[in-house]
């Protein structure tokens, strides 16, 4: 198996796993809420691989459901954030000096404030819950991709072949569509995928802190913060398994992003 086949294998495997989690969690969304006091506080066993909690809920089902929610929220916010980044980045590069300084200032401003603080503020201002988190993450995560795209477009604009294209009678629209877009799109998609892990981790963090999703939802942040109270009583599985699965998902998103990056990036094409 050569390097490229390996990369494709990892890409497919991680994508499949993440899709499975998202889908299963969606199927189990009602089951995740079922309480059954006859099976409360069970340690991990074959039937309940992640154990059960103080209300007798199946922690495996709850974790998968929580992660599924995280992934779906991640897709939404990463996409929104990337599109926002694209608009801002291209805007900064083509709308002239004033727009560029304004957007660059905004990027610096957002990057200058600690992520989690800004996220809590925005989420709180939007009334917390699903939309609070979504808006918060979208508005805090676009900056680095926007900066990247701005740089790319700027560089393309001054590149010799694009200047020549204009002299050969190509209109601005044609240049944007035929020269720039094919160049920017791969970067855009890589950036988008690499946004997922951030989005998911931040969603979990602010939910954990109580500024995100509401406590009755089986979100991964809620699961982790509830489990805190039981850790001291020796029920380690309540935190350990959901935490580990969260980490696996985040890592797989990274693998996914890096695989895509490696397949697209000409620098490592022949590895």
């Amino acid at each position: 198996m050569n390097q490229r086949k390996k990369t494709i294998f990892w890409l497919a495997a991680s994508a499949l796993f993440l899709l499975a989690v998202a889908f299963l969690g969606y199927l189990w969304r009602d089951e995740a809420l079922v309480t059954d006091f006859s099976r409360k506080n069970l340690a991990p066993c074959l039937k309940y691989p992640f154990g059960t909690d103080f209300m007798g809920r199946d922690m495996f089902v709850r974790t998968v459901t929580g992660l599924s929610l995280s992934i779906r929220l991640g897709v939404l916010t990463a996409a929104a954030s990337a599109i926002f980044a694209g608009v801002m980045g291209i805007g900064a590069a083509v709308l002239g000096k004033a727009a560029d300084s304004a957007i660059t200032f905004l990027i610096d401003l957002v990057m200058g404030i600690p992520h989690i603080l800004l996220l809590v503020l925005i989420s709180y201002a939007c009334g917390k819950g699903f939309w609070g988190v979504a808006v918060g993450i979208t508005l805090t995560h676009w900056t680095s991709l926007a900066r990247l795209i701005r740089g790319e477009v700027m560089q393309l604009k001054s590149s010799q072949y694009i200047q020549i294209a204009a002299k050969l009678g190509q209109s601005r629209l044609q240049i944007a569509g035929k020269h720039m877009l094919p160049h920017i799109l791969p970067q855009f998609f890589t950036g988008l995928i690499l946004l997922f892990p951030h989005a998911i981790l931040h969603e979990a963090s602010i939910t954990f802190l109580g500024f995100g999703l509401s406590p009755e939802q089986p979100a991964i942040g809620v699961i982790l913060s509830e489990s805190m109270r039981y850790l001291a009583m020796g029920r380690w599985w309540l935190a350990a398994f959901p935490g580990a699965l969260l980490m696996i998902c985040v890592l797989l998103f990274r693998v996914l992003g890096e695989s895509v990056c490696r397949l697209i990036d000409p620098g490592s094409v022949h590895e």
Binding site: S159, Q160, Y161, I164, K167, L168, G169, H179, H183
Partner: peptide, 20 residues
């Protein structure tokens, strides 16, 4: 506007064509 009647041929052809 459009095709320029004065055409410049540059020194470095590698930079004058879109690599993609």
């Amino acid at each position: 506007k459009g095709y320029c009647p004065v055409q410049l041929i540059w020194q470095h052809p590698e930079l004058s064509v879109n690599p993609r």
